[in-house]
Amino acid sequence: MTANQSETISTKIWREEPEPDNPFAARACYCSGYDVYGDLLGKITWIEYVWLLFRLDPPTPVQKTLLEGLAVGLANPGPRDPSIHAAMSAGVGGSTHASALIAAIAVGAGNLGGAREVLTAMQYWAQCGTDLDAWRGIIATPPVEERTDVWPAMEHTPGFDPNGARCPTPVRQLLDHLATHSDGAILPWLAAHRETLEQCAASPLAFSGVAAATLHELGFSPEQGEMLFLMLRLPGAAAHALEQHMNWARFPFFGSGLTLTDDPGPVARTGKQP
């Protein structure tokens, strides 16, 4: 045993007991006190287990219903969505399956319809709650970071689609479903004030906005919401990437969809420009 063995991983999430013949294998695993394989397995749904991992206590029936509904609503943004497009771009060239999900996460992480937008929108919810005047103020004068960051600055009101026309029907359907099942204040308020907020933002509510409101109402932190949004959109990315496996010849290449405006023209074989 070396001195470094005093270094440990501190966690409130996970406890293990070792197998008697192998200290590197667990005999039992406990998630926030529950025996995962000896108790939870067979009793708990996947979405309840996800909740437990993040929140360390079981969800109420309403909380479970809302997170489950949101998970269904986010599971597949469809093949036109940039994150799914990225996953399919991995699929068509026969890239590794992991890279398809990495691509979906990277492209779906950003400020436009991505997880960072959800985080920022949740910060708006934390600041404004159900105060319409506060929303009007933050939309008119959004917070600006004094110093730069790796993340691009927001270019639109988070949770709203800058390229939208009116709120798409599926976004309204998801919001209505969640607001109907809610026992909180946020989702019913958003459903009632959606059009007012859309007028303030000059753009329609997006799925990212519904996700942010739901996750805020459920008590998740913005950082937890960002993580959950990244995770919950992966099923569609995986399915579409597999469907397009090596399908490059029947996948959009946009062959005539690029115009080069700074072109030196063909260069002679000597390497010198004509």
């Binding site: 497009h85 990225a86 890239s95 992480a109």
Partner: peptide, 29 residues
């Protein structure tokens, strides 16, 4: 296809490192 992932990350306003790292991973085609 690998570059497209980087470009899609740009159009979606993700970070440069996420764009390049994911595009590199897709290059394992």
């Amino acid at each position: 296809w690998n570059n497209r992932v980087a470009a899609l990350a740009g159009t979606s306003r993700s970070t440069g490192v996420l764009a390049i790292a994911s595009a590199v991973s897709v290059t394992e085609a």
